[in-house]
Amino acid sequence: MSDEKPDTLLTANQVAHSWVGDVFAEDLNAADQMRLAFGLLDLLDEYWVTCEIRFANDDAEGPLPADVLWDGYRRRLEADRGADAVTYSLWVDWFEDHATSATAFAEVLGNDIDRVLAEQSEVLLRRARRVLECSGPVRWTVKEPAYGLAVRLPALHSAVFRGLLTSFHDVYGDLDPTAALRLLDQLDLPANTQHLAALRHVLVAGHTNHYRGPAAWDDAVRSCS
């Protein structure tokens, strides 16, 4: 409820904007403040909670304890529930920023990709899928090793494809067309997978990003239709 209008129920988004920032003013150590913030993320399922966490990490009293920060992300990426707020946060806040993308990608997947291959547990595969699908903005040299290992698991082929596709289409997407084509050709995907033929077409032609040559994608779609 609103303090000013006690009979008015606030939406989850309004609660996030009104109250989450106060978590980092609580008389708690930084790790406990962050755990409380992640608890509110679980409760509210609002992207703004992740913004407040990032603000606290970047402010004069930051950074926040990295082990607690990234453990919080990993746990929610593994959970058997929606993770849209977390994956959107990774995509637009951590992965699009080249000052943080390498560390963020390593923490949520890169450091664990060997373990994903070894264990192939559903929770690790779930995390890997979610990270791969939103990893388009991560620099190619950072994510290519993880992509190269992920193609060994058929359970991740669809996610690798989504990662390659967003690496091409995202405004900040990054890929090497020759290496990306080599990975694409290792994926076992249905022949009618949407955008599969068009993506192969632009990679064969050596294009690196939709926005550096927007006509190339349109030409590819026409050629493959």
Rank of each mutant, 00 (worst) to 15 (best):
M1K: 12
S2Y: 14
D3V: 05
E4Y: 13
K5E: 09
L10V: 00
L10D: 01
L10R: 15
A16D: 05
W19Y: 14
F24N: 07
A30Q: 14
Q33N: 06
R35S: 01
G39N: 07
G39C: 00
L43F: 07
L43G: 02
L43R: 15
E61W: 01
E61Q: 02
L64M: 08
A66D: 10
D67P: 00
G72A: 02
E78C: 04
E78T: 03
D80N: 14
R81N: 07
G82N: 10
W91V: 03
D97E: 10
D97T: 11
S101P: 02
A102W: 04
T103I: 08
F105R: 06
A106R: 13
D114H: 08
D114W: 08
S121F: 13
V123M: 10
L125T: 08
R129M: 11
R129F: 01
P137I: 15
R139H: 13
R139A: 15
W140C: 09
V142Y: 01
K143N: 05
E144K: 07
A150N: 03
P154D: 11
A159C: 03
F161D: 05
G163W: 00
L165C: 02
S167H: 06
F168V: 01
V171P: 07
L181P: 09
L181Y: 06
L183W: 03
L183M: 04
L189A: 11
P190D: 08
L196F: 12
R200N: 02
L203D: 06
V204C: 06
H207C: 02
T208S: 15
H210G: 12
Y211F: 10
R212D: 15
G213D: 12
W217G: 01
